[in-house]
Nucleic acid binder design. Structure first.
Lengths: 71, 71
DNA sequence: AAATTTTGTAAAATATACTTGACATTTTGT
DNA sequence: ACAAAATGTCAAGTATATTTTACAAAATTT
């Protein structure tokens, strides 16, 4: 799956580690890592929380990631 | 949870039933119903597929639904 | 008003998002 | 080069998204 480089960049722009972002969003560091690496398909509420923490919108971070609902 | 009226409206604008949208997006009718009624927290790939089928973006249909990752 | 389509909903099963704990590799700072 | 911090990843467990089957209520059509 495709890596989410926009998310990685937005996090870097705020100088946050994966672990710090994870705490803000109340998930584990592994979950943040997996989302950035495109290792799976997060829920929209998690995406929204990530967007809020990074000061971005859904379109800015998650639109055009391909779609194609994986079964 | 909050209903997704924007999604319902976008679907109505294309004159699609929940079942027709479900087939386009390859989920069940019940899943579409649950998403519209805010009964749960869909994955982002499903949201993206719904957006594509309805000709909208994530921000148009799913942004501002509150966030607050439910555990 | 009867028939048909659409929608709400519920219980049980399955698939998968997410956690926990742990270890290896990479990157950054000194 | 060394230490410390940050990241990748894996296996086993838990939580929840999604399916399947099914039935009832509401809306639409004839």
């Amino acid at each position: 799956m495709a890596k989410n480089l926009r998310m990685k960049a937005a996090r870097a722009a705020l100088d946050l580690s994966q672990d710090e972002l994870a705490k803000k969003v109340k998930v584990t560091r592994q979950t943040i890592s997996a989302v950035e690496n495109g290792d799976y398909n997060p829920t929209i509420n998690l995406c929204i929380d990530i967007c809020i923490a990074l000061g971005k919108t859904l379109d800015e971070l998650f639109w055009n990631d391909g779609g194609g609902n994986k079964k």
